[in-house]
Amino acid sequence: MFDLDGVVYVSGRAIDGVAERLDRVREAGVHLAFVTNNASRTPEKVAANLNKLGVSATADDVVTSAQAAARVLRDRFGDGATVMLLGGAGLESALAAEGLVVTAQPDDAVAVVSGYGPDVLWKDIMRAATLIRDGMPYVASNTDLTIPTDYGLAPGHGVLVRTISEFAGVEPIVAGKPARPLMDETIRRVGGDRPLMVGDRLDTDIEGAHEVGIDSLLVMTGVTHLAELVSATPDLRPTYISPDLEGLFEAHPVPEQDGSRASLGGWHAEVRDQTLTVDGSGSPADWWRVVASASWSALDTSGSAVDVSGLEPPVAAGQAGRR
């Protein structure tokens, strides 16, 4: 189960080696799913973009938070239920595919559902927020506070969700990561006996894996860097860590722990006076593993994250310029 931005591509460009590695996964007989919190694009459009980047994908390989939200609504209200939509084409298409009726007339609706949609009108937001305040159920595709754009990070759908929730005094049912509906929907659609969530974000991908009780692989090609990793509480810690997707094909040995010192593959990490130091040599993957082990042990003991300001992670092949 692959997150997209930060795992498969960054800034609209495929990460070096990703396409070949995903082909190797398929050749091993493993089911692949591309899992996205973005509710604005249909699975067909997501798959088309992946193919444009050289990554083989079909619409059936893609599962979106829009599909998960539609499933939540259908399970709760049944086929043919009428819902008020605040969102784009991806969410509207997912609702129709589940047999739900989309309306602009709030008097006919049994619930409000929202997803990222740059053309959503303020007057519609006002009407929906009032209905939610007055008791109408509310389902949100996701609560991501930011969204990447050509001009940098911009406010995401989560900003709208927060605005509505604060006005109405109501917490929505959330479909996207880290909530479990999207994870459950992916497993249901794609199948597999031992799901593995592969992501770059601790608070969506890794926390989402914890939510449904499956293993996770954190890759260091996206938004999680050293400071975030050493600060991770147990609910945000991955099962496995790798600099990139090559970690799918490698053994993941566990560092040896001796008090505040963790050792693996020639690397030794130790916490003294809440400062982490690392010495030795070896693979970049093992460096990240000893750092995580030593840091998390110190965090669990002291309640405070260690100081890593003096550390510079080793750079894996294909990751020049990333930390």
Rank of each mutant, 00 (worst) to 15 (best):
P234F: 12
P234Q: 11
E228Q: 15
V190H: 02
E211V: 14
V212Q: 02
V291P: 00
E211G: 10
H210I: 02
Q274N: 15
I206F: 05
L226R: 03
T239D: 11
I214R: 02
D244K: 11
T221S: 12
S260P: 12
A209Y: 03
G266K: 08
R201F: 06
R194G: 01
D235Y: 07
P178N: 09
G266T: 06
L196H: 10
H210D: 14
V219E: 08
L218W: 01
D279T: 15
H210K: 08
L236W: 07
D215K: 10
P243D: 04
L226P: 06
T221Q: 12
W267M: 08
R261Q: 11
L245A: 08
V271S: 01
G222A: 09
R189G: 03
V190G: 02
D205F: 05
V190D: 04
A209N: 02
A232W: 06
I187P: 03
T239N: 06
T224I: 07
V223Y: 10
L196T: 04
D215P: 05
D279P: 02
G280L: 03
V290N: 01
L236Y: 14
A179S: 15
D215A: 14
R261N: 01
H268V: 15
D258H: 13
A251V: 13
E270H: 14
G265S: 15
A262H: 03
G280Q: 00
E207R: 14
G266Y: 09
G280I: 03
V212N: 05
V223D: 09
G266H: 12
A232R: 06
T186G: 09
P243L: 09
M197W: 06
